[in-house]
């Protein structure tokens, strides 16, 4: 895999050959299998996969909350428990409500008190964009606000490694923007950020490296830009009545053509070539859109979601 760029900074997280099976109703389920993953200082690494791909199990093993059946986990050169005890790891797990009867400020201060060298509580609230909520009781927060407070709890210990499982679920647009801005700021200061998600757009826009997993296995890993390019497929849609899909499928660069009423949809191996040929041969085509492709297309191909659908 293209995970080993030579000019990477020192690794903070290294998972090698990780495997974990669970006994389920239908016998053994291999949740994670032969998984390799690493993050270096200052990197934002996305663990991308559909639901049930093994993201949360991987994160649990990374944090030492679950023992792997096989493989090794190294966080800052030691066992996860050591890094956690040293206060070097900030965590936002997928599920979790906040304890009640404290204000946001009090809760974050309480969390800060267990770390050896925490950030200033007010600074943390500002960083996450919840300074206006400081006095609010935790049980009176909305879902998105709760999520941002949980993010503050992960940050306040001033961690060198930040591990986030589906961090932006339930956040509104503003919350997401603040979140990713904070994240990039931390990475610029050398913090490793490792986050699990199934939101492609977020990975595309924010991650340096992406590790795609499906059914517990890594199906692709590398710099986000590289993987986006790998999914060469594009989809062209146009309003074009009265032309048989069979004719369109023969255009150069087109693999498959379909008709939905007046609209035709072309799956293209080479989107640029197909678009030129379409416009040259069918000048009456209107409302032409080129979509798909990029990371999304790569994701669909690599995780085999298309076959499943």
């Amino acid at each position: 895999m293209a995970n080993a760029a030579e000019d990477r900074r020192p690794l903070t997280v290294e998972l090698r050959g990780l495997a974990k099976a669970f006994r389920g109703a239908e016998g053994r389920v291999q949740a994670v299998d032969a998984l390799d993953l690493s993050a270096a200082e200052g990197e934002i690494v996305a663990l991308l996969g559909p639901n049930g791909a093994g993201k949360s199990t991987t994160i649990d093993m990374l944090l030492g909350l679950t023992e792997p059946d096989a493989g090794t986990v190294s966080v800052l050169g030691g066992r996860p428990a050591q890094a956690i005890a040293a206060g070097d790891v900030g965590v936002m797990l997928q599920t979790g409500e906040l304890i009640r009867d404290l204000s946001v400020c009090e809760l974050v201060a309480m969390a800060a008190s267990v770390y050896p060298a925490p950030l200033d509580v007010d600074d943390t609230l500002c960083l996450v964009g919840i300074d206006a909520l400081a006095g609010r009781r935790t049980q009176k927060l909305s879902g998105g606000e709760t999520q941002r407070v949980r993010f503050a709890l992960a940050l306040v210990g001033n961690p060198r490694v930040l591990v986030l499982d589906e961090p932006t679920v339930a956040m509104d647009v503003e919350g997401r923007l603040a979140f990713w801005e904070a994240m990039r700021g931390l990475a610029a200061r050398g913090t490793s950020v490792l986050f699990a998600t199934h939101y492609l757009a977020e990975v595309d826009a924010n991650a340096d490296l992406v590790v795609m997993i499906a059914r517990g296995r890594v199906v692709a890993a590398g710099p986000t830009t590289e993987l986006s390019a790998r999914g060469g497929l594009r989809t062209i849609r146009a309003t074009l009545p009265g032309v048989a899909p069979g004719r369109l499928a023969e255009l150069p660069g087109v693999q498959w053509a379909e008709r939905h009423g007046d609209v035709v949809v072309l799956d293209c191996a080479d989107g640029d070539m197909a678009l030129r040929a379409l416009l040259a041969e069918q000048p009456e085509a209107r409302d032409v859109e080129v979509g798909g492709g990029g990371l999304e297309q790569a994701f669909i191909e690599l995780t085999g979601m298309k076959e499943a659908a």
Binding site: L65, V89, L93, L98, I99
Partner: peptide
């Protein structure tokens, strides 16, 4: 209660 809402799990990932 704190087990149910996932708080103790969060604490396990802190130095507490």
């Amino acid at each position: 209660i704190e087990r149910t809402i996932g708080w103790t799990r969060h604490l396990r990932a802190t130095p507490l």
